[in-house]
Design a protein around this nucleic acid. Structure first.
Length: 466
RNA sequence: GGCGACGUGGCCAAGUGGUAAGGCAGGAGUCUGCAAAACUCUCAUCAUGGGUUCAAUUCCCAUCGUCGCCUCCA
């Protein structure tokens, strides 16, 4: 079975065939860096990290480019407000963003181009557009001529006629068409500016992605991704610009993730209910955020609420449980039962791939993994030894790894505490042998307060960090 | 007004033209000194109204509702 991906351009699932066999040119629109990352950014980044990891697992060599928009009106405004240098402000948030990505176990991009570092390519692309009649300069500004491309609007399904009719923005008389958008903006005094054939200025938002795409991945790419709020105008305009320059199809597949929504109300700056990645990670393991994203479809909305996160925490504990060792005093599994366990692992693996091949159905893939969790738990309960669980657990670790889940047992800073805890557990064993329940319970409760969970069975006690 | 998405059990959420995965929570058991974990069993007819069909939750139409975009946004 081959990989199918939902393509926004065709509004259907298509068989994925990269331009060059075995290689994937993948571009994702990164953030404009003027504030700390919130969990909506994280959702998008996680979605495309999962896509990328699965492509890699499927044997593709993935060239993954994610840009940073580091010159922009909002950055300038924020810098002025704080009395800081715009470039340094951008630099600061880029580093913060990268730190968040790392904490979320998101693989670093192959390249992280920045608008300010690709200025010559941006300018040359605008020059080409002017030369081809797709753009025009007016008093130091340059606009893209939307009417020059007859399929303008093909990604978002919009028609120029209806758009101009409903245009709400004050019409700039210097534009040929109200929907014409800026490729180059002339600089006001004091703003960051670059020298260009049209005078001092800076690039428009859309052109930088087109230019960085072309510079770092080439004229045609396989997958272009981003949030579905970027479909129009950003991606629509990227297509227009790039295809006007190259005369070729820009990206084979356009992928868009759904938006995060808070249960009761939208997360927005005006409501002041933004949740930053740092805030989330202060309270929950990174795996919980990833699992929360994996639970649903990347294309649909993702609901955030306290209840949902608590449910995800519980589900996370269940996944962790699959990696637990054999029970103390395990007698060993019969050959038939062991065979059944390993057969189940194989089945789950096939199932997992089938689901992921169907437009990254992570929810279905997760369901397969829970089947494996159950099989492993059953085997353990029936007395499987560590070495008998190993093979199925290896499959489990492999597949959860493909999804980018770490599922690491909580560890102490050093391992020094272990010996002391072991000592207490042995001590408690003696207390229990004497049926001194009061003291042994006190010991268990005390350890719980310190984050150590004791679990008794008739053949002994195991412990783990909470 | 235009474009688009969605409405599945208490919550989150897959999926299919032939009566609905999984997780969380709940109920009943097993195990246990108790607890925890685990295991077993249990818990929906898919917004509403029409239509197409031998058969629809799945296709079509309408209605109601929710949401996104159309201005910066992952």
């Amino acid at each position: 079975m081959s990989l199918k991906i939902y393509n926004t351009l065709s509004r259907s699932k298509v068989d994925f065939e990269p331009i060059e066999p075995g290689k994937v040119r993948f571009y994702v629109c990164g953030p404009t860096v003027y504030a700390e990352a919130h969990i909506g950014h994280a959702m998008s980044a996680l979605v495309f990290d999962i896509v990328r990891r699965y492509l890699m697992y499927s044997g593709y060599d993935v060239d993954f480019v994610m840009n940073f928009t580091d010159v922009d009106d909002k950055i300038i405004a924020k810098a002025n407000e704080l009395g800081e240098d715009p470039y340094e402000l951008a630099e600061h948030y880029i580093n913060e963003y990268k730190r968040n990505l790392e904490e979320l176990n998101i693989l670093p991009a192959t390249k992280n181009p920045r608008a300010t570092e690709d200025m010559p390519q941006i300018i040359s692309m605008i020059e080409t557009l002017i030369a081809k009649g797709s753009a025009y300069a007016v008093n130091g500004d340059v606009y893209y001529r939307v009417e020059s491309k007859d399929d303008y609007g093909k990604l978002s399904g919009r028609k120029l006629a209806s758009m101009s009719a409903g245009a709400r923005i004050q019409v700039d008389e210097r534009k040929d068409h109200p929907m014409d958008f800026a490729l180059w903006k002339s600089a006001k005094p004091g703003e960051p500016a670059w020298e260009s054939p049209w005078g001092q200025g800076r690039p428009g938002w859309h052109i930088e992605c087109s230019a960085m795409n072309m510079t770092h991945l080439g004229e045609q790419i396989d997958i272009h991704g981003g949030g579905n709020d970027l479909i129009f105008p950003h991606h629509e305009n990227e297509i227009a610009q790039t295809e006007a320059v190259t005369g070729k199809e820009f990206s084979r597949v356009w992928m868009h993730n759904g938006m995060l929504s808070l249960k009761a109300e939208k997360m927005s700056k005006s409501l002041g209910n933004m949740i930053s990645v740092d805030q989330f990670l202060a309270d929950h393991p990174a795996d919980v955020m990833r699992l929360w994203v994996l639970n649903g479809s990347y294309r649909g909305p993702l609901i955030y609420s306290q209840e949902v996160i608590e449910q995800t925490e519980q589900a996370y504990q269940r996944l962790l449980g699959a990696k637990k060792a054999a029970l103390p005093g395990a007698k060993g599994l019969e050959a038939a039962a062991l065979e059944a366990l390993n057969a189940e692992a194989d089945k789950v693996k096939a199932d997992f791939k089938e689901k992921m091949d169907d437009d990254f159905n992570t929810s279905g893939a997760l369901a397969a993994l829970y089947e494996l969790v159950k099989a492993i738990n059953q085997a353990r309960a029936e007395g499987a030894k560590d070495e008998q669980l190993a093979s199925a657990q290896a499959v489990f670790t492999e597949l959860t790894g493909v999804l980018g889940l770490r599922l690491e047992e909580q560890k102490t800073a050093g391992g020094d505490a272990d010996a002391f805890i072991d000592l207490l557990v042995r001590l408690r064993r003696d207390l229990r042998a004497e049926k001194n329940w009061a003291l042994s319970d006190k010991l268990r409760d005390g350890l719980k307060d310190l984050g150590v969970i004791l679990e008794d069975s008739k053949d002994g006690t195991t412990w783990s960090w909470e």
